[in-house]
Design a protein around this nucleic acid. Sequence first.
DNA 1: TAATATTGTATGTATATACATTTATTAATG
DNA 2: CATTAATAAATGTATATACATACAATATTA
Lengths: 150, 150
Amino acid sequence: MGKIEDAIRQREFKDPYNKAVVNLLFTHSYLVTIQNSLFKPYDISPEQYNVLRILRGQNGKPTTVSSIQERMLNKMSNASRLVEKLKSKGLLIREECPTDRRQVDVVISDKGLELLKELEVKVEEVNHTLIHLNDEEVTQLNDLLDKLRG
Amino acid sequence: MGKIEDAIRQREFKDPYNKAVVNLLFTHSYLVTIQNSLFKPYDISPEQYNVLRILRGQNGKPTTVSSIQERMLNKMSNASRLVEKLKSKGLLIREECPTDRRQVDVVISDKGLELLKELEVKVEEVNHTLIHLNDEEVTQLNDLLDKLRG
DNA sequence: TAATATTGTATGTATATACATTTATTAATG
DNA sequence: CATTAATAAATGTATATACATACAATATTA
C-alpha cells in the first residue's frame, strides 16, 4: 500500500501535521475494515466486542452503563444501546442496581465469556499481521500516539 | 491525556501490537471528535468535507462517483449518498455523463469552493493544535503509519 | 420537608458505515 | 444480432456515531 499520497491519490499536504491527521484517518479505516471481516462470522461488531472486553475486565463485578461509556474507545458512542444489543444476544446480564435505581448493573454472561475467549485469539493473531512494523517501531508508534493526544 | 492505559483504564495489553491497534482506534476517536465540533457550525460532516476536497483536487474536471469512492479515506463509505447530500446543499453539481450514461459527472460548485476555502483555514489551524508533537516527531509518525499498512 | 438541581439511563433524529442487492447501461461473445 | 457478462450508480437494511432531549431517581438546599 505504501505512502498515503499514492493511496488516496493526493499530490501533497500543507504540512506534516495535516498529513498526519489524514494518515491517521486512513490507517483507522484500514484497521477497522479488517477487524470487521474478522467479527462478521460471529455476528458481533468491533464496538460490541470492546464492550465485552470492558465487562470482563471487571472480573465479575457489576458495571454501570456510564462506566462502560467512559472506558469505550469512542467516547461519543452509545453504551446504552450496545448493552441492549448484547443483552438480546445473551452475552451479558443487565439488572436494576439495588442501591441506586437510576443505575443498571451490567455483568458479562458465561456465553459472553466463551465468545470473547474464542474471538480474542483470532484478534491477537490478526493484530500482529495487520501491522507491518517490527517491535521497536511499534513501541515508537505507541509512544508517539500517547504523546500526540497531549 | 497521556498513556492509553490510563485513558481507557486498561491495565495492560497482550503485546505492543495489540496495544497499537487500540491506540490507533482511540486516537482516531480523539481526532474526529474535535473535527466534528469544527464542522458542526457549517452543517457539514468530516466525510462531506473530504468529498469536497477530492472534487476540488480535480480542478474543474468532472469526476465519477466511483472515482470519488476510490479516493475516500474510508473505502467502504457510500459516495453515492454523500454526493446526493452535497448536491441538495448546492455544494456540487451532478449530471449525467454524455459519453456513458451509467456514469455521473460530479463537479464542485462555486458555493462549494467558497465553503471549502473558509473551512480549510480552520482545519489547518486545528490540525496543528491537535497534534502535540514537534516537527521531527510528526514526520516519524507519518513514516510509521505509511510503513504500518505495508 | 418541599422545591430544585443533578445524575443515570433511555430515546429520538440525522448522518455515516458496511455490505448485499437491484437497476440501467455498455461491453463482450457466440 | 441476441445473449450474456461486466460496470456504474443507486437502494435496502442493519449497525454505529453524534448529539439533543426526556424521564426517573437521587442529592442538594432553602
